[in-house]
Design a binder for these strands. Structure first.
Ligand SMILES: NC(=O)c1ccc[n+]([C@@H]2O[C@H](COP(=O)([O-])OP(=O)(O)OC[C@H]3O[C@@H](n4cnc5c(N)ncnc54)[C@H](O)[C@@H]3O)[C@@H](O)[C@H]2O)c1
Ligand SMILES: NC(=O)c1ccc[n+]([C@@H]2O[C@H](COP(=O)([O-])OP(=O)(O)OC[C@H]3O[C@@H](n4cnc5c(N)ncnc54)[C@H](O)[C@@H]3O)[C@@H](O)[C@H]2O)c1
Lengths: 213, 213
DNA sequence: GTGAATTAGTGAATTATTTCACGACTTTTC
DNA sequence: GAAAAGTCGTGAAATAATTCACTAATTCAC
């Protein structure tokens, strides 16, 4: 069996990308693919792809490549694509609204179920078919949801994270620039868009002509 | 002098984070800080911080720490914070609109100067004080701007990237799920939000109780 | 059916990054 | 002004990730 503890984090981060790409191939009706083709399409070295897959066993066939449907089915199980993961979104501002209007469920096992905001003028609306509640109702509405997207103003990030964790949240996708502090059974991924933009500019200036990432 | 070619990419990616954080300390009027304090606040190991800084020379003082203003001034120069980098945004949809409404210039040397969309109903407006042009005017309007944020539908990503590169763009922050192909003097950073969300869920399930990233 | 071409899987080498741990120096305390 | 405490900078070790390069298996072309 697959030993998940042995799967490198770098590999784990690429899995959703592989999954989505295989799903597209499947939709296109392609039934076979090689690590070289995958490499060209996803800009990941072909040896890295083969190595990544190999952590899950021998999924391909020498001289042939990988069977798209088989591989897809395998990853579906591995990534638990069958069961949907419900998510809440906190902070229906510029960024929050964009996310509510986007259908993550397409190609993805996550779904934003409920949104919360402190601004009464946003409460009660439906955006992208998702109901917006007042943040005061968080505790009664969150139910069994353990994943949150955090798009509140930076000053609210830590208090809101504390409150989410109090309500049973175990994973936070944090778009605020604040580096929030959490107990170590809670996972936080930071996506810092301003940093990403600045980072791109820095790399453009100082690492010309090289292949990076 | 600093040899930029010797600076690890992992370090380079953290620099904008350091910069922003130091800027906040400066605004708060703090004049000294240790790698330990920085570590707590930014969730980066203190040895990693000291190592990162050390690529730029001996910026601190033993037994004391770092002088906030000195360090900030140093990074300002290093990250070229003095000169503003102009940016264009292509695709004024959900995500694009959110970015136009956000002031990246705060704490940051980048500024979205112009936006482009193919939808005539969006053209001519100002969003977040940024003028929206028709994408047909791209070539005449882009001038000396070499950085683009790409928030168009996935099918438009590659053709639009080609067109941007044709117009002199050297760096693209790509929010579409497409892994675009570019000449190797052009840098692309992909931010794949659906993948990030799925990745968070995967890590929650399979890497419980560990400190990651 | 046969030889050429293709391609997965992987041991080993390489490269990149993080972390430990300690000497050197500075500041603080009394 | 001496001792204690704090903290940087860094060599070396540890860990993580990527890439090379080869073998073995399979497919493909004819
Ligand atoms: N918009 C961007 O492009 C962008 C870019 C980089 C970073 N960010 C970060 O993302 C976060 C959100 O940005 P935004 O532009 O969407 O901001 P925004 O001000 O448009 O939205 C914030 C929303 O949070 C709500 N809110 C405030 N306090 C709340 C609370 N306690 N509980 C629930 N909701 C609350 C506000 O009513 C508002 O609707 C900010 O931290 C910002 O720094 C945004
Ligand atoms: N909104 C999200 O939360 C989200 C999340 C993950 C990924 N994405 C990706 O980001 C991209 C944008 O998402 P969105 O929700 O903002 O989409 P959207 O449909 O709201 O916006 C796309 C915009 O691009 C414009 N456009 C179309 N063709 C164009 C062209 N050739 N030139 C210029 N403009 C053009 C459209 O008129 C529209 O305004 C998509 O690729 C999407 O997959 C979005």
């Amino acid at each position: 069996m697959v030993n998940y503890n042995k799967i490198p984090q770098a590999t784990a981060k690429r899995l959703p990308l592989y999954y989505r790409f295989l799903n597209n191939l499947h939709i296109q009706g392609k039934d076979r693919v090689s690590s070289k083709e995958l490499s060209n399409a996803m800009k990941v070295d072909s040896a890295t792809i083969r190595r990544d897959f190999s952590y899950f066993g021998a999924l391909g066939k020498k001289g042939y490549g990988y069977n798209v449907d088989y591989l897809l089915g395998f990853f579906r199980k591995t990534l638990d694509q069958d069961e949907n993961t419900p998510v809440v979104l906190i902070g229906v501002g510029n960024l929050g609204t964009a996310f509510l209007n986007y259908n993550f469920t397409k190609n993805n096992n996550t779904k934003i179920e409920k949104a919360f905001d402190a601004d009464p003028s946003k409460v009660g609306k439906k955006i992208g078919n998702i109901q917006v509640y007042h943040v005061d109702e968080l505790e009664e509405q969150i139910g069994d949801i353990h994943v949150a997207i955090l798009t509140v103003p930076v000053a609210e990030a830590q208090p809101m994270a504390d409150r989410l964790i109090e309500s049973g949240v175990k994973g936070i996708l944090n778009f605020t620039p604040a580096r929030i502090t959490v107990p170590n059974d809670v996972r936080v991924h930071h996506i810092d868009l301003a940093v990403e933009l600045q980072s791109l500019v820095y790399f453009m200036k100082h690492y010309p002509l090289e292949e990076i990432e």
